[in-house]
Nucleic acid binder design. Structure first.
Lengths: 130, 130
DNA sequence: AATAGTAGTATACTTTTGTATACTGAATCC
DNA sequence: GGATTCAGTATACAAAAGTATACTACTATT
């Protein structure tokens, strides 16, 4: 659909529209850092609370979790819902955009799996052929 | 194909196989940082030399370019070929794995475009854009 | 009044990433 | 023998990302 590949076919830079470049950097900014994808992966399993995320995102500190969740919220990836119970209950869930990240994650997994197989089959020590 | 979504459908963590997690973090590690994707995008246009990359990757310093190219080479994304001419000629090109990154890039662009449209249509004033 | 549960914040630090600017080395050309 | 070209490296610094550890605010229960 986006057909980034146009730039391969011997064209000028302008063949890759600016809005695609923006879209790409948007996506990178959303998922970058050490914790974004692990958190998103946890949220894909459903609605969760802060404490749950703390426990099941290995070794993340509350400070980082808080920071990352804020960024994800600002970027429209997660929603934060407050329930005025006692003790207070706060739920985090993915937005529609957040759920759509599965397609990006899937393609990253596909590439990673493929790449690992290439590395194993192609790259014997010393000889580096394509 | 990789079907990361299995973890949505009410399962345990184990439903997302460890190798998928590894594949995902591989991919993240390969593309993370400020310069990896711009460099890969340049390389998608064909074989290039260090100096070309310096000129057309906006404002990158030789130090960073050198560092990033080394990492990409170590990760099996680019190949470096030395021609013993004078002045010496060194060519950088994508490996097969490197070229396959187009599918990841495309899905990131697709998500970014979609997300921008969601942000415009969904989100009330106050919510922040990327 | 002390305890416990939820959802974080505060402070100080280390590590990683990125920037700025100048420089090296090899070889040929003039 | 100095200028030029290519492909980087060296040094010093600044900024961003991440870690460690302790603490706060609210409130309901004991």
């Amino acid at each position: 659909m986006s057909d980034f590949k146009v730039i391969m076919e011997g064209g000028t830079v302008e063949q890759c529209p600016r809005r695609y470049v923006l879209a790409l950097t948007d996506t990178l900014n959303v998922i970058n850092g050490k914790w974004k994808l692990p958190i998103i992966a946890s949220l894909l399993r459903g609605v969760v609370r802060f404490k749950d995320l703390l426990e099941r995102t290995e070794k993340i500190t509350p400070r980082m979790l808080s920071k990352e969740l804020k960024e994800l919220e600002m970027n429209g990836i997660v929603e934060r819902k407050v329930f005025s119970q006692t003790p207070v209950l706060i739920e985090y869930r993915l937005t529609r955009s957040g759920r759509h990240l599965t397609s990006v994650i899937d393609s990253m997994i596909d590439w990673g799996v493929l790449h690992r197989s290439h590395v194993v089959t192609d790259e014997q020590p010393g000889s580096d052929k394509i």
